[in-house]
Design a protein around this nucleic acid. Sequence first.
DNA 1: TATAATAAGTGACAGGTTGTCACCTTTTGC
DNA 2: GCAAAAGGTGACAACCTGTCACTTATTATA
Lengths: 213, 213
Amino acid sequence: MASERFLRLPPKKQKAIYDAAIGEFINTPYEKVSINKIIQKAGISRGSFYTYFEDKRELLSFVFEDTKDQWQNFCLSFLKKSGGDFWGMMEAMLDAGMEFCKNNDLFRLHRNLMMYQEVTLMEMPSKSETARMLEKELYPLADLSTFQEKSKEYFVMVMEQALFAVFSSIVYYYENPKTEEKIKEDYQKKMNILRYGACKTLKENQMEEQKAQ
Amino acid sequence: MASERFLRLPPKKQKAIYDAAIGEFINTPYEKVSINKIIQKAGISRGSFYTYFEDKRELLSFVFEDTKDQWQNFCLSFLKKSGGDFWGMMEAMLDAGMEFCKNNDLFRLHRNLMMYQEVTLMEMPSKSETARMLEKELYPLADLSTFQEKSKEYFVMVMEQALFAVFSSIVYYYENPKTEEKIKEDYQKKMNILRYGACKTLKENQMEEQKAQ
DNA sequence: TATAATAAGTGACAGGTTGTCACCTTTTGC
DNA sequence: GCAAAAGGTGACAACCTGTCACTTATTATA
C-alpha cells in the first residue's frame, strides 16, 4: 500500500507520520481529515507525502493495517490455545473489543470512523482480502465438528455473519457505554441465533409434539 | 432534513434538484461529488442551494429517503399479502434487490455508494431509525410462531442479521453480476443459518445417535 | 578523495472545493 | 400601489489537493 520509498524510511520518521495521521483520524471525521495538517504535524513537506502515499485513503488503510493484524493475531492465538473453539473465540472477541475500546486510542479512531459513518465496509467481511484471510488462516484451525457443513465456504459465511454481530455490538457500545452488560447479553443471543437458529426446527417441533402426546 | 424553504418549492424545481443530485451520486464516489456541478445541472445558484440543504450529507440523505421508503413498503406489502411470512419476505427481498439493480438508476446509485465504500452504516440496521421502523411497522405484521423468542427485541436482532445478509449479497452481486444463481444459493444458506443455526443442536445429535443405535 | 548517479525532499502553483453574506428580485397581503 | 416577507444570487475568503521542476543528500565507484 504505502510506497517503497516510505517503507525505506527510518522507522522514527515513519512513526512520526503514523502518529500524526492517527492523531488526525481520531479527532476528525474522514471527509474533513486534512493532509495539510498531517504533514504539518509530522514535519514533512507536501511533496514528500505524495511520494509516500497516493492519497488520503491509502494513508488510512496503512493506519488500519495495524488494527487488522491485531485482530487476526487475537483470533489465531485463541484458536490455537483452545483447540479450535470457534464460539469461544467469538465470545472473547467482544470482550477484547470492549476492553480495547476503553483503553486504546486506536479504538477511538475506529469509533470515530464508525460513528461518522465514514468507513464502511472497509473492515467488513465483504472485502475479499478479509475473506481470504479467513479461509487461509482461521479455517484450518477451527473445530467444525458440529457444523452443518464443513466447507471453507460455509465457514466464511458463518464468520462473516458473526463478525457483523461483533462490530455492530461494539458500535452500540460506543453509542451508549453504560449498557455493557446488556450489550453482552444481546450479543450472546445473536451468537445463539447463528449457532442454533432463530426458529425451532421441524425436528424439534416434532419432538415437542411427541412429548406432548 | 431538507429545509422548509426547500419543501415549499414548486415540485418541478424540487425534482430538478433531486435529479441533478441523483445524476451526480450515480457516477461519482461520495467524496468527489461536487455541489458545484449539482447546482449547475439543476440550474440554481450556490446561495439557494445552501438555503435548501445544510451540506452534501443532508442532500444525500434526502435522496436516499426515497429508496428507504420503497424498501419499507415492499416489506410491509409482502407481509400483508403473505400473512406474515418472514422468511418468504427475506427471500423476496433479494430477488427484488437484484431485479431492481438491473433496471433502476436509483440502485446504481446504491451500488456506487457501496462499492466506493462511502456510505457505510447509513443503510445498516445499527441506525436507530431503522430499528424503530422495524419495531413499529414490521414487527406487528410478522408471524413469529416458530421463533424461539417472540419479543420485539429478538425480532429486531434477527432482522438486523438478515438485512446484513441481503445487502452484502447484493454487494457481491454488483461485484460479479454473472454469478446470480450462486449468489441466490449462498443467500439461501445464510438464511438457513439464521433460521436453523450453523450447528447441529444437542437434540439433533442425540437423535442421530439414537438412530444409529 | 572527487565525482557521477541515484534517491530523497521541497514548496509554489493551478485548479478545484465549500459556506457565507450583503444585496437584489419576486411574491404576497392589505 | 406599496411595504414586508420570502426567495434568489454570485463574488469572496479560506481552504483543499496533486503536480512538477527543482534542490539537497546519499551512495557507489574510479
